[in-house]
Design a protein around this nucleic acid. Structure first.
Length: 643
RNA sequence: GCCGCAGUAGCUCAGUGGUAGAGCAACGCAUUCGUAAUGCGUGGGCCGGGGGUUCAAAUCCCUCCUGCGGCACCA
């Protein structure tokens, strides 16, 4: 044991091993059971193949199927198995990259005819054969040039390119599974059998080589894989459940809105959907008035000259709807894609004094943006929408407090709406393509950083992702299937004031530039509605529900009383309907439950006689009979908005 | 915009070359019922648009539009 190594185990125990011992040796030294169960070994936290010799003393942890890292190994290896299956079945297909991702894996292939889901059955069948063969994953380190020559010779030009681009000095490792091999950094499971059979190919998609649209489009196959069938099944079940809360589905079921071919990416709001929309907007108006905002509104269409001046004609033209002139001499007009240039005109309509600042101007700006056809997505990405926008004009000294105040306002609104949990903030800093001086960027980013400390929300740094004119804080909410959507945003802008020549007269009598902070809380009202609907799976809080209560009769004998109850509810401002149809109470309960009406007030002979109602709440079985007046008070209290 | 898939009754969907279907909804009639579907009956279609192949097209081919899942974009 002259050249042994000392390994430290998670329990703190340190043991000596002969030099050249592998992870498998370590596992075997502990117990035969572990030797069998071990999949990989973590050396100082870095996951390595079990078969690789351990070069140095370190802390070790054996990874078994239970560990979090196991899933990633299983998924990564499933990608390899799929790649082999594909190349076995479709010779001439090139492999590129195939990582493990959340819930599964994918592999990008280069092939003249893209795959279709019809190919899945064959690929999955071949994958099962490869898994059954239990081929060991064997790691080899190759000479760089040999590797390039090899991959070129077998027509794997993408792999050769990957090797060429590897940093100098990085090992070129190749893994074999049977007679198939792939360039790969590893680590891998001991054999293909360890992948198991709890996998399923999910979808095909196009994906650009290296994520760049100027490159060739590859065909990507997504799969999901798990430790066992039970996990797979529950994953598929989760997907089904998520589908049920898709806002597009709920929109139809709850009769909130629809889309149609003649107005791509634009919403036809139905009475119930529009009720939610205006209720949200009313809430927001109360909120911003209480926070010292004024509200303005600016034109929908502006002469092209204006957009040339603002810079949009250059920078944003592709996303704008431009109306061609009718006559030769008429200049084109464009529908506004953003509210800020218009809002700035209101600022400029008067000579502003330092006494006017901070000036907080809100605008529910209806903007229209041309979106790429593949980008549209229900309410989440539309071509015409209303932003709950605001522009705050302030002095340098006011900047930080203003930004903190608006972040607090955003957080308050999200809390009021039940969306605060899981809220993420992205701090996006200066991009490469930017205008303005580094000193200004330092100041603006510094201010946002201080703000982040003060507001105490979890945040991620998103370097280089700021707008070309300002760093920003983006407030990210997620939809039913975990897709992230930006809703709120705060942007500290040091450029527009100069471009649009904004000024205020200071205490010293001289003209100064104000700072301009752009902010939206819900962002797009449409998108926010989509997120809300999915978050609540359609079961909106009482104050937002389009129909808050339905008075349902048991027999027609109670119709007159139901009318009285309805009127009483409406008198106290509750959105209520009466269901006096000649249907059984079971039918009515079912129908209104499916329509997600939060409160059912059932009235029959007994209630009519005693001037009471039987309250049944959505999702509950229990009924509570109470006097009508009590019910009215309860309802009125419960339907009150959070602000 | 790119790759794959889809578009049939208000909704959900079946129908793969030979007379357009089902369930729910709607409408009518009967039923007056106590907390998630009462029964019977009736009406309802440019099978996304255009072009082509064929004796014959919802069905096969081309093309456009819209949507869905990704990618890219956006933020």
């Amino acid at each position: 044991m002259a050249h042994g190594i000392t390994l430290t185990f998670p329990d703190g125990a340190a043991r000596a091993f002969p030099a050249g011992s592998t992870g498998a040796d370590v596992a075997a030294s502990i117990s035969p059971g572990l030797a069998k169960a071990a999949l990989a070994i973590a050396l100082d936290g870095e996951v390595r193949d079990l078969s690789r010799p351990i070069e140095r003393g370190c802390t070790v942890r054996l990874i078994t199927r239970k560990d979090a890292e196991a899933l990633e190994l299983i998924r990564h290896d499933a990608a390899h198995v799929m790649a082999q299956a594909v190349q076995d079945l479709y010779p001439g297909t090139q492999v590129t990259i195939g990582p493990a991702v959340e819930d599964g894996f994918y592999y990008d292939f280069a092939r003249e005819t893209p795959f279709s889901t019809d190919d899945f059955a064959a690929i999955e069948a071949r994958m099962r054969e490869i898994v059954a063969a239990a081929e060991p994953f064997v790691r080899e380190v190759w000479d760089r040039d040999d590797a390039i020559a090899h991959f070129e010779s077998i027509g794997e030009h993408y792999k050769a390119e990957i090797i060429r681009d590897l940093p100098e000095g990085e090992e070129v490792s190749v893994y074999r599974q049977g007679d198939w091999l792939d360039l790969c950094r590893g680590p891998h499971l001991p054999t293909t059998a360890h992948v198991g059979t709890a996998f399923k190919l999910m979808k095909v998609a196009g994906a650009y080589w290296r994520g760049d649209h100027r490159n060739a489009m590859l065909t990507r196959i997504y799969g999901t894989s798990w430790r066992d069938e039970k996990e797979l099944k529950s994953h598929l079940h989760r997907l089904e459940e998520a589908e049920k809360r898709d806002h597009r589905k709920l929109g139809t079921q709850m009769d909130l809105f629809h889309f149609q071919e003649e107005a791509p990416g634009q919403v036809f709001w139905h009475p119930k959907g529009w009720t939610i929309y205006t209720t949200l907007m009313d809430y927001m108006r109360r909120k911003i008035r209480a926070s010292g905002y004024v509200e303005i509104n600016t034109p929908q269409m502006l002469d092209a000259r204006f957009w040339r001046a603002s810079g949009h004609w250059d920078k944003y033209r592709e996303n704008m709807f431009v109306l061609p002139p009718e006559g030769e001499d008429v200049p084109p007009v464009a529908l506004k894609p953003m509210s800020c240039p218009g809002g700035a005109q209101v600022y400029k309509s008067a000579l502003r004094s330092y006494r006017d600042l901070p000036l907080r101007m809100a605008e529910f700006g209806h903007v229209v943006r041309r979106e790429p056809s593949g980008a549209r997505h229900g309410l989440m990405r539309v071509q015409a929408f209303t932003q709950d926008d605001a522009h705050i004009f302030c002095t340098d000294a006011q900047l930080e407090d203003e930004v903190v105040a608006m972040c607090d306002l955003i957080a308050q609104v999200y809390r009021d709406l039940g969306l605060a949990e899981g809220l993420r903030v992205n701090f996006s800093t200066r991009p490469e393509q930017r205008i303005g001086s580094d000193a200004d960027w330092d100041r603006a980013e510094g201010a946002l950083r201080k703000v982040l400390d003060r507001i105490g929300l979890p945040w991620d740094l998103n370097p280089g992702d700021g707008a070309f004119y300002a760093p920003k804080l983006d407030f990210i909410l997620t939809d039913a299937i975990g897709r992230a959507w930006q809703c709120g945003t705060v942007q500290v802008d040091m450029n527009m004031p100069t471009r649009l020549d904004l000024a205020y007269v200071g205490e010293d009598g001289a003209r100064h530039r104000p700072h301009l902070v752009h902010r939206a809380i819900m962002g797009s009202m449409e998108r926010f509605m989509g997120v809300l609907l999915e978050h609540y799976a359609g079961n909106l809080p009482l104050w937002l529900a389009p129909v808050q209560a339905v008075v349902a009769t048991i027999t027609s004998d109670a119709n007159a009383y139901a009318g009285e109850v309805l009127e009483a509810l409406q008198q106290v401002g509750i959105r209520a309907e009466a269901d006096t149809r000649n249907e059984k109470i079971n039918y009515k309960v079912r129908e209104h439950s499916l329509a997600k009406v939060p409160v059912l007030l059932v009235v029959g002979g007994r209630e009519a006689e005693g001037r009471s109602v039987a309250i049944r709440r959505l999702g509950g079985k229990a009924q509570e009979v109470m006097p009508l007046n009590t019910a009215l008070q309860t309802m009125e209290a419960e339907c009150a908005p959070p602000f």
